[in-house]
Design a protein around this nucleic acid. Structure first.
Length: 670
DNA sequence: ATCGTCATTTGT
DNA sequence: CAAATGACGATC
């Protein structure tokens, strides 16, 4: 190979392993998702370490890429281009990380370059100059707090022993889950291994990082999120890559973090859709961590106050053990939950509460908590989540005649007609609205959210401070003492000592949503809020505005997330939905979707559902999009991903065509 | 995608 | 007969 010539100037190739396999970092069509060979000049021989970044000429232009391997020969028949330069000797794509990226690309039928882009942050030269200090092993924390859970101490013991324990952890209501996960991470670190903890959002990252820092010291843990900014992000990522820090806390952006000697991976609240990466190939933190645990022989903890059908499947299939507290312990810790259905609604007698139109049970629960100087959490739908309605003439807010809750348009259609207005609290439909103050029959949409609810509640409890959290302004915590805390789901501030009561006002609407995961999602939000309320024996109460005969409501009342997750999983199995089946969605113009399906070599036993219109119809109705679902048995997932990748590659190699979006395990099916 | 090459069409 | 347009197809 040495002495090979180019047209103009002669260069000498490295004497040993002169061929470099390079993954180029440019947007390429699907059929070009592969490694390209280049010739390595002698002068770059020492610097060209597999895993480093290089610059090469591709399509005549200089582009960045990753040197994946060095070899003696190339299969390429044409003349190889030269590697232009080695950008940095830092090995940013070590073999284990490359393997992970490959596995994820295969799992999702996506392109390796797309996954690598998610896994390796953009380079920032200055960040590479930081010192490399080795991380010291911290002391092992006590496993005592975990003894409330069956198999809890055993889990920590396994983590310490470096065994690949796999657990679905059902956190007890009121549990300081950040402290528990920090203990688990510190246990791994004490054994000289690394830990990666993935949580839904930035606020959780901050809390969990602080909890870890208490056990590991400020330098013993690092946070990785997308919000960090290029330099800080790369700097911290490098510290992880170099093994300078053992424990990583982050959002989904951290799911590929190259933690050394992985001993523990954990995902908190895996039902939160923030765990799903919104860019191709749309990997999900739970799935990626599951794979990593398997590949690295590390322990895995899938945790939450609620439980997803996916977590239930991990338990049911015997892949993971359940780490949960005995029933008595659950009953001890849980608040008392009351459901108020459509038929049970009774307005409070208290004139102030009547003015705020609060049901009496909710009013009493709140008043009792406030009397004990405890804060009350009020969970309301996200702003703009459901457009509320007002009288079209006098602008007074439109009210349910049964319970006086706010009326809203549920959205969606029923028999071709838009659904009539319905109460946001009790769910009763209102087909013939008549304004209580002026008698008008006209309705107009208004934006109602936490602000309005807060105002109304304030009137019902004069003198009690009202705080709101959600939308642009999310509170991290509230001080102990009487207060009304109005929050949208997911934005609930932490209350030291817990809330005295929680009112979950969005019941029916949440449950009525058409999505596959609507029920699971509603229950997940309720559990998250209710878990912040003090135990029932200390007076803690939760009032949920939903019919007590519904299964998710029963699950909340009995505090049994596992039971509901099992039912949900059984239901999905019956319908042939994930996670019981492996499903991929194919979105695009009707032509594009059909074209891809034509090229698809469907795995054995697979079937195509649809395509169906995707709702969002264009102004002129011309370029509406469609979605088809492709479904195979759970064990055929890999075959489906391969078939989808192949179909896209064949399609892409032909003339430029409309793009299709393919998602394996999409969060929402329709 | 984007940029070549080569064939075909179009203009004078 | 040259310039302009367009269809492949390769991209190390």
């Amino acid at each position: 190979m040495a002495g090979k010539t180019t047209g103009r100037l002669e260069r000498t190739a490295a004497s040993s392993l002169p061929v470099a396999g390079v993954l180029v970092e440019v947007a390429l069509p699907a059929h070009l998702d592969r490694v390209f060979d280049y010739l390595l000049p002698e002068r770059l021989d020492a610097a060209a370490v597999p895993g480093c970044r290089v610059r090469v000429r591709f399509r005549g232009k200089l582009v960045d890429g990753f040197l994946l391997e060095r070899k003696e020969n190339s299969d390429f028949a044409g003349t190889l281009q030269w590697v232009d330069r080695v950008i940095s000797e830092e090995v940013v794509l070590p073999p284990e990380l490359l393997q992970l990226c490959r596995a994820v690309a295969e799992r999702y039928g996506g392109m390796l370059a797309d996954v690598v882009r998610l896994a390796v942050p953009p380079r920032h030269a200055r960040a590479e100059k930081q010192p490399r200090e080795p991380a010291a092993a911290p002391p092992r924390p006590t496993a005592e707090p975990w003894s409330r859970y069956q198999r809890g101490p055993a889990l920590l013991e396994a983590i310490h022993a470096g065994k690949p324990a796999r657990a679905v952890w059902q956190a007890l209501p009121g549990e300081d889950w950040t402290a528990r996960l920090a203990e688990a991470a510190a246990t791994a670190a004490a054994a000289g291994r690394g830990a990666l903890l993935v949580v839904p959002d930035n606020r959780d990252v901050q809390r969990l990082r602080a909890a870890c820092a208490r056990l590991l010291g400020e330098s013993g843990v690092v946070e990785l999120t997308a919000e960090l900014g290029p330099e800080a992000r790369y700097k911290r990522w490098l510290a992880v890559l170099r093994g300078t820090v053992r424990v990583v806390v982050g959002t989904r952006a951290a799911m590929f973090a190259p933690v050394h000697d992985l001993g523990l991976l954990a995902v908190w609240d895996d039902g939160d859709e923030m765990h799903s990466y919104p860019t191709a190939p749309y990997p999900h933190a739970r799935d990626v961590l599951t794979h990593r645990a398997h590949a690295a022989g590390a322990a895995l903890v899938v945790a939450g106050f609620a439980r997803t059908a996916e977590a239930a499947l991990l338990v049911e299939s015997g892949w993971a053990h359940e780490v949960a507290a005995p029933r008595e312990q659950v009953r001890e810790s849980a608040p008392r939950v009351t459901a108020i259905g459509e038929d049970d609604v009774q307005l409070a007698r208290d004139p102030a509460a009547r003015a705020a139109r609060l049901p009496s049970v909710a009013f009493e629960a709140a008043r009792a908590a406030l009397k004990r100087d405890e804060p009350v959490l009020v969970q309301v739908p996200r702003r703009g989540y459901v457009p509320a309605l007002a009288c079209g003439d006098c602008r007074e807010q439109a009210r349910c005649r049964r319970c006086a809750g706010p009326l809203a348009l549920p959205g969606g259609t029923e028999g071709g007609q838009p659904k009539p207005a319905a109460c946001r609290w009790c769910g009763a439909a209102e087909a013939a609205f008549r304004c209580a103050s002026c008698g008008s029959r006209r309705l107009r949409a208004i934006a109602v959210g936490a602000g309005r609810t807060a105002e109304e509640l304030g009137r019902a409890f004069p003198g009690v401070p009202v705080r709101t959290s959600g939308g642009g302004e999310v509170l991290d915590s509230v001080r102990p003492g009487p207060a009304l805390v109005v929050s949208t789901p997911g934005a609930e501030p932490v209350a030291d000592g817990g809330y005295g009561a929680a009112l979950l006002l969005d019941g029916r609407t949440l449950l009525a949503r058409p999505e596959l995961r609507a029920t699971e999602e509603a229950l997940r939000r309720w559990f998250a809020a209710a878990a912040m309320v003090r135990p029932g024996r200390d007076g803690g109460r939760v009032v949920v505005m939903a019919d007590s005969s519904l299964q998710p409501v029963q699950a909340l009342v009995r505090w049994d997330p596992a039971w509901f997750a099992q039912l949900e999983l059984a239901g999905r199995s019956e319908l042939g939905f994930p996670p019981a089946m492996r499903v991929a969605s194919v979105d695009g113009t009707p032509e594009a979707v059909n074209d891809l399906l034509d090229h698809l070599d469907l795995p054995e036993g697979g079937e195509v559902l649809g395509p169906v219109p995707l709702g969002e119809v264009d102004e002129d109705g011309g370029s509406e999009r469609e979605r088809a679902l492709v479904r195979v048995g759970r064990t055929r997932g890999r075959a489906l991903a391969d078939a989808l990748r192949e179909a896209r590659a064949v399609r892409a190699s032909k003339r430029p065509s409309d793009p299709v979006r393919v998602r394996v395990d999409p969060l929402e099916l329709l």
